[in-house]
Design a protein around this nucleic acid. Structure first.
Lengths: 294, 294
DNA sequence: CATTTTTTGGACTATCGGTATAATATATTC
DNA sequence: GAATATATTATACCGATAGTCCAAAAAATG
């Protein structure tokens, strides 16, 4: 992705946050980022596509940080899950995306609608899986219900809070509060075999919606391309992570725990550097690949 | 309210349901209801005001039916509460209002935003009170949390259901399901004194947002006006309810239980008649008055 | 320097919500 | 029934919107 395009994206994001999506005109973006109309529509095929790019970036951001939290940790640690959920909330709040999600969910554009829908369903699917990790496999039949209710409670409490209170909300307090409610709910559901949604509501989504997975070859190609991109001014310490990832991935059976550790260090090494965005993007790709294998 | 205006309102509602609010243009409404632009803007000062009129009508509809359900019943009967909640869901579904609420909640128009916001907060406030009715006054400190979570769970489950399933949702099954979750949650909250929202988050709303209450004199005036409006073709049986309500209200201390019964019969007597809308409106006013006194 | 790619800026289209108005139709009143 | 008041119509108009198109200028590339 072009550097200028990224600037435009950031400007658009800032405007959407401050003024709202529908009330921000394309002209506003043009004025603010000092580009011409032609350039904008060269970058994005429409205002909606521009928004989608922003949302995708936020999703990847949250995704990477969530995965890094799990490195070397116990999957069943409830506090880790709380932190992971808080991360999404933080990203959403920092970027003020929640209103955008909802404002756009019922908009006229079908692409935009299905994009947001899939985003939400993917989130539910993820939380379902994690709830089984934490509470054990006997909650599997109820995981979908619980995941959906979790988000429902959280989102609605958040709405009311911001509608009636001026104070900044305490994110982890909210997440912990809702998690305790799930604690209370779960045993009763299991005892009474109380189910509303089918257990496998999200299975179909995982297969057809999942962003196109890259092949190992494509991933290696991206990494080598990135390595060549790095000039002499980049610290060798930063470069060596890329080289290591390449070597490890090329082995017959790459060690997952090693990849996990190194990809995090790799991303962190590029924070603040000029190629941070590309590094982040790559980290996301590697994580996706690792997840698909493990 | 003019008869023609009501027709326009119904047409607009149908279009909003079928095409969505933002994607329905004023021109669409004009074409469909065969009126001119001038007439439309004579009826409504804007497209948003037109929507507000629709939403207000739906709210009154649900409100009247809910109150009627309570006549002669035990306030603490949980099944009645379930029915009452189902009513709102039915009205919303019949009129497909949920998407409209959400689509509009983050729109640019401030009037519209605060209208919807107040509508939701009034709903939370109502449910808080009813939860105390049902579960006892010791849940009062947690009623706001529970009410908000109730709606959060319900709404999110509804979203997912309609996103992944073609079948029509079983409303009372959903409401009962969520109510059972509240059952599970409440005792734990009381034991641990677990609170997120303040108990009185909604109190402020009730005072300043509450639609302008009519004085007794205004109410009597409306009733007499309605009585005069009724021509000779109206059945005396229908008229006598109005006369009775007038007499009872004029007494020093109107008996609430009598008003409750009669106002329901009054409304039912006009179902299908030409003055049904006005009768419904009046029933709503009387209910509001009764509630404010009782 | 020559070629290719990107960027520019403005003209243009169609639609939107909303305003203004003058002419016409429908009620109401005397 | 005539006079008056009110409601409705049709249409032109406004400013703002998202998006298209294109020729010229600028910048990057070999």
């Amino acid at each position: 992705m072009n550097e200028r395009k990224r600037q435009v994206l950031l400007t658009a994001q800032r405007l959407f946050i401050n003024k709202g999506f529908s009330t921000t005109s394309v002209q506003d973006i043009l004025d603010e980022s000092r580009i011409s109309k032609g350039t904008f529509y060269n970058y994005f095929s429409s205002k909606n596509e521009c928004l989608i790019a922003i949302l995708e970036h936020a999703r990847n951001e949250a995704s990477v940080r969530r995965r890094e939290l799990l490195i070397g940790q116990d999957l069943s640690d409830k506090n880790i899950l709380i932190e992971q959920i808080s991360i999404r909330m933080h990203v959403n709040r920092e970027q003020n995306l929640l209103p955008i999600y909802e404002a756009v969910f019922h908009s006229g554009d079908d692409d935009l609608k299905t994009f947001i829908k899939n985003m939400f369903l993917a989130e539910f699917s993820w939380l379902s899986k994690r709830l089984v990790d934490v509470y054990g496999k006997e909650v599997a039949p109820h995981a979908a219900d619980c995941a959906v209710m979790f988000f429902g409670m959280m989102q609605q409490l958040l709405h009311v809070w911001s509608a009636v209170s001026k104070e900044e909300i305490d994110t982890s307090k909210l997440v912990s509060f809702v998690m305790r409610k799930i604690d209370s709910i779960i045993s009763g559901m299991i005892d009474a075999n109380d189910i509303f949604l089918h257990e496998d509501v999200f299975h179909k989504l995982n297969s057809d919606q999942g962003e196109e997975m890259e092949t190992k070859a494509q991933l290696l190609e991206r990494l080598t391309g990135f390595l060549e991109l790095l000039g002499e001014e980049t610290r060798p310490a930063a470069k060596q992570y890329v080289q290591f990832l390449l070597d490890e991935l090329r082995t017959e059976c790459p060690r997952v725990f090693v990849l996990e550790s190194v990809v995090r260090s790799f991303r962190e090494a590029f924070v603040g550097l000029s190629h941070e965005p590309e590094a982040h993007e790559l980290a996301y790709k590697v994580w996706s690949y690792v997840d698909s294998k493990g």
